[in-house]
Amino acid sequence: MNPIYLDHAAATPLLPEVLDAMLPLLREQYGNPSSLHRFGREARSTVTVSRDAIARFLGCSSKELIFTGGGTESDNLALFGTAVVPASKKNHIITTAVEHHAVLHTCSRLEKLGYTVTYLPVDTTGLISLDKLRSSIRPETLLISMMYGNNEVGAIQPIAEAGSLAREHGVLFHVDAVQALGMEPIDLSSVHVDLMSFSAHKIGGPRGVGALYCSSRTKLEPQLLGGSQERKKRAGTENPAGIAGFAEAVKLAHDGLEDKRQRMEALRSRMIDGLVRELGADGFVVNGPEDPAQRLPHILNVSFPGCSTETLLMNLDLQGVAAASGSACTSGSLELSHVLVAMGLPPEVAGSAVRFSFGSTTNAEEIDRACQIVGTIVNRLRK
Rank of each mutant, 00 (worst) to 15 (best):
L275A: 07
S303T: 00
A281E: 12
G126I: 08
G226T: 03
A266K: 15
H338K: 09
S327Q: 09
L225A: 12
A53W: 10
G320Y: 15
A155H: 02
T82I: 00
V250W: 00
S357E: 06
T106F: 10
S190H: 14
T12D: 02
Q29E: 13
R355K: 07
E310C: 05
A241W: 06
T361P: 08
D368F: 11
E258Y: 15
V341I: 05
A324F: 00
S190T: 14
G163H: 05
L6M: 09
S331R: 04
D187G: 02
L133C: 06
A281H: 13
T309A: 03
L300P: 08
F358Q: 07
A166S: 05
L181S: 05
Y213T: 03
T116S: 12
Y115M: 09
R268W: 09
S199C: 11
S357Y: 04
T362K: 09
I367H: 02
V47L: 05
E99S: 14
S357W: 00
P121N: 07
Q223E: 14
I144L: 04
F39K: 14
L312S: 04
T106M: 08
L127G: 03
I144F: 01
Q294E: 11
L15R: 05
A370D: 00
M183S: 13
K232V: 02
V250E: 09
V209E: 03
D317S: 15
L313N: 04
M22Y: 01
E28Q: 12
V339H: 07
G274D: 08
L104T: 11
Y148G: 14
G227T: 00
L113K: 04
A342Q: 01
R231N: 13
V191D: 15
T125E: 08
I243L: 07
A162P: 05
V209R: 01
G149E: 05
H100L: 15
A235E: 11
A353D: 08
S164K: 11
V18I: 00
G81P: 04
S228F: 14
M183V: 10
S199F: 09
S145Q: 07
Y115I: 03
S61P: 06
G226K: 04
Y5K: 13
P305W: 03
